[in-house]
Simulated scan of single mutants.
Amino acid sequence: MSHDHHHHHHHAHGHRAMAAAPTFSLLRLSAGQRLAGAAVLLLGLWLLVFGVMG
Score class of each variant (00 low, 15 high):
M53W: 08
A12I: 13
L48R: 07
L48P: 00
L35R: 12
T23W: 13
G14R: 02
H3S: 10
H15N: 11
V52E: 04
H8I: 03
L27N: 11
H7S: 14
A20Y: 06
T23N: 15
L35I: 09
R28L: 15
T23S: 14
H11I: 07
H11Y: 13
A39Y: 03
V40L: 08
L26H: 14
L47D: 13
R16T: 13
G54P: 05
P22A: 00
H5D: 02
L29I: 00
S2Y: 10
L47P: 02
A36D: 03
H7F: 01
G37F: 01
S30R: 01
A38Y: 03
S30C: 05
W46A: 12
G32P: 03
R28Q: 15
A17M: 06
A19R: 12
A12W: 13
M53A: 08
S25K: 08
F50G: 05
F24W: 09
G51N: 06
A31H: 04
M1S: 12
R34I: 05
S30I: 01
H10D: 12
M53F: 08
A19W: 09
S25A: 14
V52K: 07
H15R: 14
H10Y: 03
T23Y: 09
L47K: 14
L26P: 04
A19I: 12
H8W: 07
R34A: 00
P22G: 02
G37M: 02
V40P: 02
F50R: 13
L45T: 11
V40H: 05
H3V: 10
Q33I: 04
M53Y: 07
L26C: 06
L26V: 10
A38I: 01
M53P: 01
A21E: 10
H7D: 13
G44L: 04
F24V: 15
V49A: 11
G51T: 01
A20N: 04
A36T: 05
A17N: 02
H11K: 12
A39Q: 01
L29E: 04
P22W: 05
L48V: 13
H9G: 02
L45P: 04
L45Q: 09
A17S: 08
H5G: 10
W46R: 10
V52N: 09
A39C: 04
H10M: 04
R28K: 15
H15F: 15
G44C: 00
P22T: 01
H11L: 12
L47S: 09
H6F: 11
S25M: 15
H10R: 06
H6N: 14
H6K: 07
H15G: 15
A17V: 14
G32K: 02
A38H: 05
H10C: 06
H11C: 05
G51L: 05
G14Y: 05
L41R: 11
A31I: 01
G54K: 12
A36P: 00
H13E: 15
A17K: 11
L48M: 04
L26I: 14
A36F: 00
M18F: 14
R16M: 15
A19F: 01
A12Q: 12
M1E: 11
L41M: 15
A36R: 03
V49P: 03
M1Y: 07
A17Q: 08
